[in-house]
């Protein structure tokens, strides 16, 4: 188990290095284009171009440029945005991360619990009207775009029915840090959590149901029945436990992508200043240092969450521990 952990962490560092080189190459070593012009933004003054060239060491060899960039990203953290007149990029990302993490963690908790209930109930009553109803509800959830559902909820919660008992507690759009006002933090995030979770709960519920039904055909389920165990114990301790792998795999990918900026739609709709919103704004102004930094941040997060998933495999599936 310890070996698995160490090896996986080593692999992770290696992949992260590879990604950073690739991201660097895309922005700085694309043939036939001048990176300083892109970093400086549209219609930049010649003095700015010179400053950029000096700042990023663009007159020096590529490996030196790479090391300089990494130093500014991870060591000194003083990568500067030229479009936004000297705004520091790294603090911006650090400020945006807790927003995105709050949004995605809460939504993830919600959708995992909901999907667990939906999938288990549907599998236990497969073929019944309850199973069909849950699967149709799941399909509807999957089919509703986040921006649409979010806008509709905003319409009701913020204006149309804001004075009704149902929505009078809803604070205005925006983000309240957890450290400042925990209850306010919770209240601003409830609707975004729900919006994001609806999509994934339907998807995960359907996948879990499929995995459970497959597990229930296995020989060890027959053995468990022959042992005289109760149906609920067979379903939860044996079938569900063995179906976790497929859900965990998917979760690692989705979670990583969402934290890495995939929650952009929800962040924009609910005016949450997270990583997705940051990327979105940077793309609109073509703010290259910010884009570069968010790309590297996002890819690192996906790699990290995949590593966590692989380590979780070791706990869930004993056959992986010896591999």
């Amino acid at each position: 188990m310890m070996l698995l952990l160490l090896r996986r962490l080593g692999q992770m560092l290696f992949v992260m290095f590879g990604i950073s080189v690739l991201a660097f190459a895309i922005f700085f070593a694309t043939p036939g284009s001048d990176p300083s012009a892109r970093i400086a933004g549209r219609n930049a003054a010649p003095e700015t171009l010179i400053q950029v060239r000096h700042d990023f060491g663009l007159d020096r060899p590529l490996p030196v440029q790479y090391v300089l960039l990494m130093k500014r990203l991870f060591v000194t953290g003083d990568l500067t945005s030229f479009v936004n007149r000297g705004q520091k990029v790294v603090p911006e990302i650090i400020a945006a991360t807790p927003v995105t993490l709050s949004l995605v963690l809460g939504a993830a908790l919600l959708w995992i619990v909901a999907a667990g209930v939906i999938g288990t109930l549907a599998a236990a009553t497969r073929g019944s009207w309850l199973d069909r109803g849950l699967m149709i509800a799941g399909l509807i959830g999957v089919s509703m775009p986040v921006y649409w559902l979010g806008s509709v909820l905003n319409l009701f919660a913020q204006s149309r029915m804001h004075d009704s008992l149902l929505f009078s507690w809803v604070p205005p759009l925006g983000y309240i840090p957890l450290s400042e006002d925990p209850f306010g933090w919770f209240k601003t995030l409830v609707i975004p959590w729900f919006t994001l979770a609806v999509l994934y709960a339907g998807l995960y519920g359907r996948i879990l149901r499929g995995a459970l039904i497959e597990s229930l055909q296995e020989d060890y389920i027959r053995t468990a029945r022959a042992k005289g165990l109760s149906e609920s114990r067979i379903l939860l301790r044996h079938a569900l436990r063995c179906s976790l792998i497929s859900v965990v795999t998917l979760f690692g990918l989705d979670f990583g992508a969402l934290v890495g900026g995939g929650a952009l739609l929800a962040e924009v709709v609910f005016a949450l200043p997270g990583i997705g919103k940051l990327t979105f704004d940077a793309l609109q102004t073509l703010d290259l240092p910010v884009i570069m930094a968010t790309v590297i941040y996002a890819s690192f997060f996906i790699v990290a969450s995949n590593a966590v998933v692989d380590i979780a495999y070791g706990f869930i599936e004993p056959r992986m521990r010896d591999a």
């Binding site: 296995e218 020989d219 027959r222 468990a224 063995c242």
Partner: peptide, 8 residues
């Protein structure tokens, strides 16, 4: 080979 639950 398949009669025992693999995760326990």
């Amino acid at each position: 080979m398949t009669a025992l639950t693999p995760v326990y």
